[in-house]
Computed example of a mutant assay.
Amino acid sequence: MTAPTISSLRVNGATLHYEVRGRGPLVLLIPGGTGGAASFDGMAEDLAADGYTVVGYDPRGMSRSTLDDPDAEQHVAEHADDALRILDLLSPDEPALVFGASSGAIVALHLLTAHPERIARVVTHEPPVVEVLPDAAEHRALVARVQDTFRTQGLMPAMAVFAAGLNKDGDTKDGDTAEPEARPGLPPRAAARAEQTMADLPYFVGRIVPGFMSYAPDIRRLEGLSDRLVIAGGQDSRGELPYRSAAFLAERLGTELQHFPGGHVGLTTHPAEFGELLRKAFRS
Rank of each mutant, 00 (worst) to 15 (best):
A216P: 08
T2H: 14
V230L: 07
V20R: 04
L67V: 10
L26Y: 02
V143N: 07
V130Y: 10
A144H: 11
D71P: 01
L16S: 01
D135A: 15
D69Q: 06
A136C: 12
P210L: 13
M62P: 06
G263K: 14
R140S: 00
A144S: 12
I86A: 08
K173V: 08
A137F: 05
R252S: 02
R183F: 10
L229Q: 01
H17E: 07
Q147G: 05
G233H: 13
G33H: 03
D93N: 04
G165I: 05
A247Q: 04
D46L: 05
G234D: 12
L186M: 15
E45T: 05
D174Q: 10
Q147Y: 06
R220W: 02
L222K: 08
A38E: 02
D200Q: 02
R279F: 10
V54T: 07
P184S: 12
D236A: 15
V205T: 00
E126I: 01
L90A: 06
A49Q: 12
D176Y: 02
A141E: 03
T269D: 15
T269K: 04
D236I: 01
F40A: 03
L9N: 11
A247F: 06
L28P: 01
P95H: 01
P70C: 13
K173M: 12
P127I: 09
G100V: 05
V123N: 05
E276W: 01
P70W: 11
R238V: 15
L16M: 04
G22L: 14
D218P: 08
Y52E: 06
S65N: 08
V11W: 05
D68L: 11
L84C: 11
D200L: 03
K280F: 10
P202R: 07
G275V: 07
P187I: 15
R244H: 06
A191F: 15
K173D: 12
L229K: 07
H125L: 02
A141F: 12
D148E: 09
E256F: 10
A96M: 11
T268F: 03
Y57M: 13
P92N: 07
A160P: 10
A3M: 13
R238W: 14
T177Q: 08
D58H: 14
P180E: 11
F212L: 04
L87Y: 02
L222R: 08
A105H: 00
G233N: 11
D148C: 08
L67A: 11
A194Q: 09
A38G: 10
T113R: 14
M62Y: 11
V209S: 08
S63Q: 10
H264V: 05
N167C: 03
T34N: 04
F162D: 13
G275Q: 02
P95I: 00
H110W: 14
G61C: 09
V230A: 09
M213S: 01
S7Y: 06
A190M: 15
D88I: 08
L201D: 00
D68C: 10
A14D: 03
H270V: 03
Q258M: 15
H75D: 02
P202K: 07
N167W: 12
A49C: 14
L28Q: 05
S7R: 07
P95V: 00
Q74P: 02
V76Q: 02
G100Q: 04
L84T: 02
H110F: 14
E251F: 06
P210Y: 04
F248W: 12
R145N: 08
A49D: 12
G42V: 01
S8T: 10
I119P: 09
A96K: 06
E45S: 13
L67Q: 01
Y203S: 01
A108V: 13
Y203A: 01
G61I: 14
E251A: 15
S103W: 00
H125E: 13
